[in-house]
Design a protein around this nucleic acid. Structure first.
Length: 399
DNA sequence: AACCTCACG
DNA sequence: ACGTACGTGAGGTTC
């Protein structure tokens, strides 16, 4: 069965949205937004459109003179992104209010107000579209609406995720790959140390911290683990000392030392990354484990910014793309079994490393075992794949 | 339509 | 001297 039919079926089935929940969220968001508006206008001493980066920039950096060396965007406007504002937070009480306003407004306009309008009249459910041919790495994308970016990180946003629910009597099952991209880095690079970290079943970020900071795993602090985690992510994306220093708010030198330490701990990873770039130069493309190609026309560019971008793509695409290939294999296999064994439960959503099923309770045990098995064994690697799962009466709870 | 900002993995 | 971590989609503002 080709993937496109699996996706078509998932789109057709859709997912239920509890509109009463959303109404309540809407009311409370609106109230908070209005009072934040008032506070912001008072602090600014004038009314303006807080949603306009241009007007906000003028207020913060000219009227209130909060310029932190006034960073600017392409078009020479003041940069008012969250990242910049965070750094100014201590300087004036308006900053926190603006950040909070922005967050709540985002939830309201992008989700709470938009989603109910996309509930299908006939089915009473939300039906996304999955695209197979948009993302250059081979990932799926989802639009109209995008159900791959439903909030989960903040408390307020999580309320929205709770509004995604199964039919009366059914339950959600969520199954997701644990650290699939880092596992792929371990496999593809063949780095003995990283492979051993996964084979021993240790917490990978703690294991990385232990190596780069030179302490026993048991002596790894939260801060060390958090930095190691950032470094691990950075590695997958084709790290630079600048990028890492920005994210950790540390100096360039310190970031460089950290990266050097990383590559000393995982020398195979460094070798693999260099090899990926060399391959891209030779062939003009890189491939995933399953042979999907990403062409990199800029890999020989004389412009180092453009070339650097292509080099990071050469590192990242085989990793992200292989992860995408793997979950697609699992989806096709799982879908085949759902059909063949006449399940009444349905696979309804895919979010890159996660599959969500709407399950009739009698089938839960069997389906959970089957789905986790198919995901875990979709491909044979030199390190184990791990799949976590959960169930619940809404999407958040299933996590 | 371009830009800025921000939601997710 | 430059600009700098991967991949998406969507809403609001501005031109």
């Amino acid at each position: 069965m080709p993937l496109i039919r699996v996706l078509a079926d998932m789109e057709r089935v859709g997912v239920r949205l509890n509109q009463e929940d959303l109404k309540a969220i809407s009311t409370s968001l609106r109230e908070d937004i209005i009072s934040l508006e008032t506070e912001i206008f008072n602090l600014a001493g004038t009314e303006f459109n807080i949603s306009s980066p241009k007007q906000l920039g003028d207020i913060l950096f000219i009227r209130l003179k909060l310029d932190d060396k006034a960073r600017v965007t392409k078009t020479k406007q003041f940069n008012t992104s969250e990242e910049i504002l965070q750094r100014l937070a201590g300087r004036h009480p308006i900053i926190d209010k603006v950040l909070e306003y922005r967050g709540l407004k985002k939830l309201l306009s992008t989700y709470v107000e938009a989603l109910p309008q996309l509930v299908d009249r006939k089915t009473g459910r939300i039906h996304t579209s999955y695209n197979q041919a948009v993302a250059s790495t081979g990932r799926l994308s989802s639009n109209n609406p995008n159900l791959q970016n439903i909030p989960v990180r903040d408390e307020r946003g999580r309320e929205i995720r709770k509004a995604f629910v199964p039919e009366e009597g059914n339950i959600f099952l969520s199954a997701d790959y644990s650290q699939i991209e880092l596992r792929l880095m371990a496999h593809l690079s063949g780095d003995r140390n990283m492979m051993d970290d996964f084979l021993s079943g240790n917490d990978i970020h703690a294991a990385t911290a232990s190596k780069i900071f030179g302490v026993e795993i048991k002596d790894v602090t939260r801060e060390m683990r958090s930095r190691a985690k950032t470094a691990n992510f950075g590695i997958i994306y084709g790290i630079s000392s600048f990028g890492l220093s920005e994210r950790l708010t540390i100096g360039r030198k310190e970031a460089k030392d950290l990266i050097d330490g990383y590559f000393k701990s995982y020398p195979g990873v460094k070798k693999y990354m260099d090899e990926s770039i060399r391959k891209a130069r030779d062939l003009g493309y890189v491939t995933t484990m399953l042979g999907r190609r990403r062409y990199l026309r800029d890999i020989l560019s004389r412009n180092q910014v453009v070339r650097g971008n292509a080099e990071r793509n050469a590192i990242n695409a085989p990793i992200q793309g292989t992860a995408a290939d793997i979950i697609k294999i699992a989806m096709v296999k799982i879908y085949g079994k759902l059909k063949n064994d006449r399940y009444n439960s349905k696979m309804i959503l895919q979010v890159h490393d996660e599959l969500i099923f709407e399950v009739v309770p009698e089938e839960l045990e069997k389906l959970r075992e089957m789905a986790v098995y198919e995901m875990t064994n979709a491909i044979k690697l030199d390190v184990p794949l791990k799949v976590d799962w959960g169930t619940g009466r809404n999407w958040l709870e299933a996590h």
